[in-house]
Amino acid sequence: MVNGIWVSLILIAIIYSIFTGNIETINNGILTHASSGINLVLDMLPLMILWNGMMKIAEESGLLDCFSKILNPILSKLFPKLPKNHKALGYIASNIAANMLGLGSAATPFGLKAMNELQKDNLKKDTATESMITFLVLNTAGVTLIPTTVIALRLMNGSKNPTEIIITSIIATFISSISGLLLDYLIRRKNQ
């Protein structure tokens, strides 16, 4: 699937540019966008290292298990296939919490770690498990309670009430997440 998207993006970009005579821009793009990718990696690097270190402490001390116990009533419904004490659950809980608080940079390391733990007991290593997909649906729906960057940009542009969109965002996020999880649930049930 990702394969198809990647191929289409590049094919459309190059063919459309040739037809519209936009070759100059696309030519420059090919040369510069690889470094944009590396810049993004470099931006992520410090926080990935820091948070993975911090979370390792939380994992070893058992704090992570406490998190997953608190969220267990919800998590066990969302991930029925995972045993109660699965290592991934603590990271999933932390990832959801970080996303909710709008701490995207902290959410990514937790999420990647969760995927790593889920992959450990995946029998077909190249194929996504149901738990992985549910986790991703939860993640891509972006359960954000405080959209910090949006509020900051509204403030910068002279909004009289920059936080007024919090409530509309929460409702929209909620509807988006619920619809995703519902469809995910229906597909899982049909596959059984």
């Binding site: 990514t108 990647l112 077909k124 996504a128 991703l136 993640n139 954000t144 996020t173």
Partner: peptide
């Protein structure tokens, strides 16, 4: 505020564990 970068998250999370059949 209501959604995240689905395709990017998908590519990143699955890419990190080398899952190609999503």
């Amino acid at each position: 505020g209501c959604t995240d970068t689905t395709i990017y998250v998908l590519a990143l999370y699955f890419g990190s564990i080398k899952v190609t059949k999503t």
